[in-house]
Write a protein that binds this DNA or RNA. Structure first.
Lengths: 202, 202
DNA sequence: GGCAATATTAACCATTTGGTTAAAATTCGT
DNA sequence: ACGAATTTTAACCAAATGGTTAATATTGCC
């Protein structure tokens, strides 16, 4: 019938775990605290997710693959660079705002175990190649200045990801709220592509 | 009497602790591991630094605060925006390349305990205000387009910090080495200010 | 209703961990 | 050389923590 936010125990656990993990990090999270936050017994955590590592991956890995799959795919429908940049930045910000802990999680996991997420990264390989080709083509048509395509991609990723990673810093500096942060991110859907395109337009 | 890198025990501890803390974070760091890395007994750690929290602060004050103090200070000698951007980006990249784990470490600690590092952030408050003023002035003089100064600062920080935070990802994607990464960062001392200034110049 | 499968809990357990203590080694002024 | 102060260590300890077990409650099926 109507999928009314099915309140299964497993979902309650995942929700609670995500909250605690993003706040305290893998090492700083206590299984007991997750259990409390989910309103269940600690043993039940191990019943649903065998151990801490699996719980951690259960929380982030799935959504990471889903979200970033969509983000990269947003490129596939674009056949010139500027719309591609707009599409990518828009998709990134819109998806990640729904799960703002993802970028920091990914940075940490990559740092701790580079091989572990290699497959995940390679997933975007095709779209990445496509993006680089779009840059070359735009360059050939004289639409943009001479710039290293890989460096451009790094800059785009930087402008997308950093506000999420530095969120607590921004929150402190600008005394920003949850809702204020959201507005800032959504505003960046326009300003970031503009910022980039102004910089590279021939 | 050349000050030949006085190898006092306290310095060995601080050095070892800095390395472990930045790699594993506050919660993930084990006092035993720091002791081992410093080649001393664990009890000696508590002899020099009463507890984990004080050790953490001791390391942090000597390392992160000094580095970022210099980076922010690089602004003080500039009296117009574009040179200020060049100085800031240059100082950031040159200093942080010597301790590439720092940005991710800071992002994590800010996320875990926002209050704990609040004082550290406020340290840069003066320079931050100065930067914002330089932006206003440049805009008043018609040197740059109309842009939210705070958003500009976020973008600058993003372009500086992100390569360090995403290093393992870049390493995997571009098959980059330690030395290659260093070269890329040093090249960005030029390309990043250029990228920014092209985007904001009126 | 009854019974097998699933979900949930309280009580435990082994290990890890931050921190202490008391004794041994070293340094240093005299 | 000697004794006091400082530095260093080995052995401990109590609390916290990830994880297990065995028993209980609940659900779903006939």
């Amino acid at each position: 019938m109507a999928p009314v936010k099915e309140e299964t125990t497993e979902l309650r656990i995942l929700e609670a775990a995500r909250e605690v993990f993003t706040r305290k990090g893998m090492a700083g999270t206590r299984m007991q605290e997750v259990a409390d936050a989910a309103g269940i017994n600690k043993a039940l955590l191990h019943y649903y997710f065998r151990d801490k590592q699996r719980l951690f991956e259960g929380v982030f890995k799935g959504s990471a693959e889903k979200q970033f799959g969509c983000i990269w795919d947003s490129l596939q429908q674009c056949d010139s660079l500027f719309p591609a940049i707009e599409a990518f930045v828009g998709a990134y910000l819109e998806r990640v705002i729904e799960e703002p802990g993802l970028p920091l999680f990914l940075a940490n996991e990559m740092s701790r175990d580079p091989e572990g997420l290699a497959a995940f990264i390679d997933r975007g390989q095709g779209s990445r190649a496509r993006f680089l080709k779009l840059v070359e083509e735009a360059r050939a048509r004289g639409e943009i200045i001479d710039i290293d395509p890989r460096e451009l991609l790094v800059n785009i990723m930087a402008l997308c990801a950093h506000p999420f990673i530095a969120r607590p810093m921004l929150a402190h500096i600008h005394g920003i709220t949850e809702e204020g942060f959201r507005r800032m991110i959504l505003k960046r859907r326009k300003t970031v592509p503009e910022f980039i395109i102004r910089s590279i337009r021939a």
